[in-house]
Simulated assay, not measured.
Amino acid sequence: MKSLPIITVAVFVLIGCTQKKQENTSFFKLNTADFKSTVKGKETGLYILKNSSGMEAAITNYGGRIVGLTAADRDGEMKDVILGFNSIEGYLKANEVFHGALIGRVGNRVGNGKFTLDGVEYKLPLNNGPNQLHGGVDGFHNQVWGVKKVTANSIVLTYLSKDGEMGYPGNLSVEVTYVLNDKNEFELHYKATTDEKTVVNLTSHPFFNLAGEGNGTINNHILKINAEKYTAVDSTLIPLGENVPVVGTPFDFRNGKAIGQDLGAQKTNAQLQHGLGYDHNFELNPPANGEMFMAASILDPESGRVMEIYTIEPGLQFYGGNFMDGSDIGNSGKAYEFRESFALETQHFPDALNQPNFPSIELNPGETYSTKTIYAFKTK
């Protein structure tokens, strides 16, 4: 009889240790069960990637979304720097539909929702005024991706975009790999092939705040963009036909400046008025050898977190959170407010299908679309 209390205590200690171990297995306070659902007849889930230095990334195969990504500040404190939700239901109900998602078949806008390929005109369903945006309402962001492979620090997602989906020709097979490497770099590898001539411009749409998701303005972030020109647009954000110099404009980020520094010019600057602030593509300065290069860097001066964006793409869309209105409540219970997040989307130029001066996004059978982007984290 005397041994019973001892055994009981031991059991409680063991249970307590087990619970503590489970609680500490991930930075994210996310319940896997909340991501187990069925969308369009396909199962969704949540996957946590980790590297050796303690960074973590949370991924769901619904839209291939980046749910969360941790990064350390100058004192070593980790915070989630991605705006996200704590369930599939949160994403389905969100006012902003592109949170953290993979974007395709054609990222950015297609003017008037139509284009001509080899003499054939294709009409696309509209979802952004007179234009199609980010592949349409049932673009890649709104699809359940297959999970091909998962390791401790990587996940491979696949999707077959069938001929005619959202108006695009050809069966497009897509594979995207996320890797959280031990250099504190979050890698995105894109590949695609087609059985018929088509068009492809893939990207990813995470919304960042380097102070931590839901932690206030990003207008104090110091942004540097490796671009001499940006894409001037009309009132529907469709390119006017050429990229224009940034010098002498609010779009000059060559030497780095606070995002909010020149937003006061919105009162008189037509381009800022069209985007309700910054929502523009920048023509990057890639090296002649086609290798990866730094497209941009951004610093949160309060935390010291720095993010560098490397790519092989010719363009970078900078969006300053102008359409956020507080209607979305994130995974920490905070509202996502106006200009409290930013997106830096590596890409080919917007409306490239209808702009003869822009690099082509056509893909032929027998060719492989391949591109790569890296978000590298450090402190200052």
Rank of each mutant, 00 (worst) to 15 (best):
T25E: 15
F27V: 09
F27P: 04
N31S: 14
N31R: 07
N31W: 00
N31T: 11
D34E: 15
F35E: 05
K36H: 15
K36G: 04
K36V: 10
S37N: 14
T38I: 11
V39Y: 07
K40T: 11
K40I: 01
G41I: 07
G41Q: 05
K42C: 06
K42I: 06
E43A: 15
T44E: 04
T44N: 06
G45Y: 10
G45N: 13
L46V: 08
I48M: 12
L49Q: 10
L49Y: 08
L49K: 10
K50V: 07
K50M: 08
N51A: 06
S52A: 15
S52P: 02
S53R: 14
S53V: 13
M55C: 13
M55L: 15
E56P: 10
A57D: 05
I59E: 05
T60R: 08
N61E: 00
G64R: 04
G64M: 06
G64P: 09
G64W: 08
R65H: 06
I66C: 07
V67P: 03
V67W: 04
L69S: 07
T70R: 02
A71I: 05
A71V: 03
A71K: 04
A72N: 06
A72Q: 15
D73N: 14
R74Y: 03
G76Q: 00
E77R: 13
V81W: 00
I82P: 08
L83D: 10
F85Y: 13
N86F: 01
S87E: 02
I88R: 00
E89A: 11
E89K: 14
G90S: 10
K93A: 09
E96L: 08
E96M: 12
V97P: 14
V97Q: 13
G100Y: 00
A101H: 03
A101L: 01
I103V: 15
I103L: 00
G104W: 01
G104L: 01
G104N: 02
R105I: 03
G107I: 02
R109A: 04
V110G: 02
G111Q: 06
N112M: 01
N112H: 13
G113R: 04
G113N: 05
K114E: 13
F115Q: 05
T116V: 14
D118V: 07
V120N: 08
V120L: 05
E121D: 12
E121F: 00
Y122F: 14
K123H: 15
P125L: 04
N127V: 01
N127L: 00
N127H: 01
N128H: 14
N128L: 07
N128I: 02
G129T: 05
P130D: 12
N131R: 11
N131M: 00
Q132A: 10
Q132E: 14
G135C: 09
G135M: 04
G136M: 11
V137G: 14
D138R: 13
